[in-house]
Design a protein around this nucleic acid. Sequence first.
DNA 1: AGCCAGGACTAAT
DNA 2: ATTAGTCATGGC
Length: 293
Amino acid sequence: MNPSPDPSRLVVQFWPVADYDLQSTLECGQAFRWIRSGAGWESVIGDRWARVEAAPGGLTVSWTEGASEALWLRHHLAAGEVLEPILATFPDDAPLRSAVARCRGLRLLRQEPWECLASFICSSTKQIVQIRQIVALLSERWGHEVAAPPGAVLNRAFPTATTIASAGEGALRDCKLGFRAPYVLDAACRVVEGRLDLEALARLDTPAAREALMKIHGVGRKIADCVLLFAYGRQDAFPIDVWVRRALSQLYFPRARRVTAARLESFSESYFGPYSGYAQQYLFHYIRLEAGR
DNA sequence: AGCCAGGACTAAT
DNA sequence: ATTAGTCATGGC
């Protein structure tokens, strides 16, 4: 069953794209399966291997299947999106000016809903390095092999809901999911049994889709918003985690002793505009970069 | 060694 | 409607 990798089918293209900060985009904590590979990164998107490297004026991209255009990869990377008008909608304030100055070109990826959902259920009270490790373990043990060139750093897809559902809780705990194991299992069972239709979510409005996601055990407001933003392109979704809460409190309510979650939520809904989710990701990445210095 | 991590759930006010 | 305790596990 080994889809024998055929190096001759490796396609390499240069894509001209303005305003693309590849490192910020792939390492800002929105996705967990882009792995460093020399001067670039590798991943498996759906069931296709891909590699990306920053180049002057754009991206050098390679893949192994479907020789012509790789629209799936262009879509995932948001390489056709024009960033300037999005950034122009941000409020003109000091925090966002600093954030954009620091990581202009950061883009929101468009991820597979199931992988995104399962990954973010695993994210609860975990550091990003650990989430990446969990996702790698799950994929190595339970993902099916995909065609990849010799020497590729990874060659397995993220496991399907069907596979996870049949894997069992113990097998998931072996991948270091801890107390999140039954949550991911529950989500997988819902998908397999048709009680959760991830494709149908795309046709719901954002509040209805959020409500449906939050019915899954282990999915609260924050994780639901991550899935809405990173998988369904709902750029008005605004995930508030510990870092964003810290950023909003310090940068926008510096005098307040304590800011409630409800206050931050209503502020985020009214202040940041139609691309608030984009602004959120700039603030998230920015404050983490600052904290790491 | 102790605190924190892209939280959510439950039980108790 | 808020609040404390609990859940695994590892980085720093």
